[in-house]
């Protein structure tokens, strides 16, 4: 499958391309007081304000650094009543390429954010589960 490859502290992760709406450059985010710490802020995306989750902070509790390759990945969560879009602040988006599907079903117990892991040319890449990265309660897109 086609997946957007990214790396957090030299560890490779991937988001399936079907979950990705668009990749936008890093912009200034509107702050959201009272939000959990992994929420970096609000993104104005096509007449909507989307919450943006700092992926690095969400996964390993370390804030993302601002790089030339830092992007905001707008993803769509398909579970629930209606699809919810939100953003992921990713420190380093490397490329988009095809990954093998073979071991997509291997899910470690207790790793809620991960949808599985694949081996790409001998390197382990973990798939991210966009449904789990944003909690269901309290977060929704707001229409301007």
């Amino acid at each position: 499958m086609l997946a957007l490859c990214l790396s957090i502290r030299d560890e490779l992760y991937a988001i399936p391309a079907r979950d990705v709406v668009e990749v936008v450059p890093q912009v200034l985010l509107r702050s959201l007081p009272g939000a959990p710490s992994y929420v970096a802020g609000l993104l104005a995306y096509r007449s909507a304000l989307l919450p943006v989750v700092d992926l690095s902070r969400r996964l390993i509790d370390v804030a993302s650094r601002s790089r030339l390759s830092t992007r905001i990945v707008v993803v769509e969560r398909a579970s629930g009543a209606e699809p919810v879009r939100y953003g992921l602040l990713v420190e380093r988006v490397s490329d988009i390429r095809r990954l093998p599907d073979a071991s997509a079903q291997h899910v470690q117990a207790g790793a809620a954010f991960l949808a599985g892991s694949v081996l790409d040319k001998g390197i382990a890449v973990q798939l991210l589960n966009v449904d789990a990265l944003l909690p269901a309660s309290g977060m929704s897109e707001e229409r301007i």
Partner: peptide, 17 residues
């Protein structure tokens, strides 16, 4: 170049969709 890169990524995503 950066913008072009981004554009290409988004294009790939759209293409996949």
């Amino acid at each position: 170049a950066d913008q072009t890169n981004l554009l290409s990524v988004n294009a790939a995503i759209e293409a996949e969709k």
